[in-house]
């Protein structure tokens, strides 16, 4: 197989509150011989909030990020569900509306850039599954996670709106019963846990303005996984990870029950199965300790 090569849009959390996510992304890419060219010029995607304030500006900034991936002639890979949503949504809107695209390009021209619409945008989870291939991963597993029940937590913005998902990625994902992360758990040797909250919201985006709603959603998710015998959870989204990993106290108070589970980033799970060390994967950066290693 030709070596896989992507333009990596890290998003902001990977450089701040989830350093372990950056470390594990790079560690897994090394193991899989995937080349990632980091888009160091990229700005924040606005995290689904900037567009509430200024829609056009949000489009321009996201189009600029994509333009850099296009300059490399590469598919853009995101490692955050909300980055994926905002970037792919920008692409979707510009590609289907030439008038809007022209307006955005008029601005980008001021800094010598152009959005063409030539780069695809996919989440790293699907780069691993669709492009690299589950069967190949399975063959490379040296330390299977066979002793663990692992609850997949998909995160909203990778699976909804499903139209956007299906437009960006090779394989469809059923928004009501997604399977990609389950398949990846199995490929890594683990047991996938079925539970109701696997495709539900973690509440991250209203953490500040609606803390009770946010905490209940986090609590329900961890409780659902716990009640179905999960030893740990795994998620492809650093924002879900922040909620599930750092907010267990508020979550427990909100649902009136003590809940807490170790939560892995998708990349950390793959990394462990492929034989990366806990240090390489940044496991010490979790608030809820990963106590099984």
């Amino acid at each position: 197989m030709k070596k896989l090569k992507y333009a990596l849009f890290t998003g902001c959390t990977a450089k701040q509150s989830t350093p372990e996510q950056m470390m594990s992304t790079l560690a897994v890419a090394r193991k899989l011989n995937i080349e990632l060219i980091e888009l160091t010029e990229a700005s924040c995607c606005g995290a689904s909030h900037l567009q509430d304030y200024d829609d056009f500006l949000s489009l321009v900034l996201n189009a600029r990020n994509i333009a850099y991936a296009e300059k490399h002639g590469l598919t853009m890979v995101t490692i955050c569900n909300t980055c994926q949503l905002n970037t792919a949504m920008t692409k979707h809107r510009l590609d289907k509306n030439p008038e809007l695209k022209a307006k955005v390009n008029e601005k980008l021209a001021e800094v010598g850039l152009e959005y063409k619409g030539t780069s695809n945008i996919i989440h790293f989870l699907y780069a691993i599954i669709d492009d690299f291939g589950l069967d190949k991963i399975k063959k490379m597993v040296v330390k299977p996670l066979s002793q663990f029940n692992i609850a997949p937590f998909y995160g909203c913005h990778n699976i909804r709106p499903s139209e956007l998902h299906d437009e960006s990625h090779k394989q469809k994902e059923n928004p009501y019963n997604p399977t990609s992360l389950d398949d990846l758990i199995i490929a890594c040797g683990g047991m996938n846990v079925e539970y109701e909250e696997k495709n539900k919201c973690c509440g991250f985006h209203v953490e500040l303005q609606a803390p009770h709603t946010a905490a209940v959603l986090t609590g329900n998710a961890i409780a659902g996984a716990t009640d179905n015998n999960a030893d740990m959870m795994v998620t492809p989204c650093p924002l879900c990870h922040l909620k599930l990993d750092t907010q267990t106290k508020h979550a427990s108070e909100a649902i009136g029950r003590e809940v807490s589970l170790p939560v892995l980033h998708m990349q950390q799970m793959v990394g462990l199965a492929l034989g990366c060390t806990p240090a390489e994967l940044g496991l010490k950066h979790h608030v809820t300790e990963v106590n099984f290693i």
């Binding site: 689904s48 909203c156 913005h157 909804r160 709106p161 499903s162 928004p175 539900k200 919201c201 509440g203 985006h205 209203v206 303005q209 609606a210 709603t213 946010a214 959603l217």
Partner: peptide, 12 residues
């Protein structure tokens, strides 16, 4: 509107 958690369930 500010309490919307942005889950996209409604759109789906």
């Amino acid at each position: 509107v500010w309490d919307c958690v942005k889950c996209f369930e409604c759109a789906e």
